[in-house]
Design a protein around this nucleic acid. Sequence first.
DNA 1: CGAAAGATTAGCT
DNA 2: GCTAATCTTTCGA
Length: 195
Amino acid sequence: MVQIARALLCKVLVTAFDSTQTTGRITEVEAYRAPDDRACHAFGNRRTPRTEVMFLPGGHAYIYLCYGIHHLFNVVTGPEGMAHAVLVRAVEPLEGTEFMYARRRMAQTPKRPDTHLTTGPGALAQALGLHTAHTGQSLLAPDSPIWIEDRGYPVQASDIAAGPRIGVDYAGACAAREWRFWLRDSPFVKQPKKR
DNA sequence: CGAAAGATTAGCT
DNA sequence: GCTAATCTTTCGA
């Protein structure tokens, strides 16, 4: 599961809605796993309408709304019945940046480098046009508007950094688990500041 | 049926 | 650095 999270780094996330295609290279991910991860919504294998999709076989999208404002995009990675998921925290915009700016209603200015466009879980989901209606969508379906490509970006083990996850301090000891992975030298990674 | 909290972000001081 | 914005989900009565 942790291996899957690392494997997702440098893969390319593609969305194609309404004949507009946007792509981004994944630069930062976090792993979540039930039943022993308090930070996971399905902690204790608790099945609710919202978490049900995490129990599906890997390859499905799990998108949910946080703080009433932000959509967070996860990839379900576990076998059926296992609530494993990888949260995509940041991507590097590749194609369709003009649509991303339009979706985020942000002006493209030097003051706002592209890193603000897709760095951060809520930000990237909005930039790629993802929202809660897409939860449960299979990324593997031939007609899926969302999928992940391997474009062969080279990844050295030394390029990958690991650390504790962000924003899950409430999870107690589980918050210390080093289940966050990012590309060490990428500017498209949110640097954890003191909170 | 009502209430509380959350895997966050943008904008201002 | 700090705070407001904002709404779905989940749990309790």
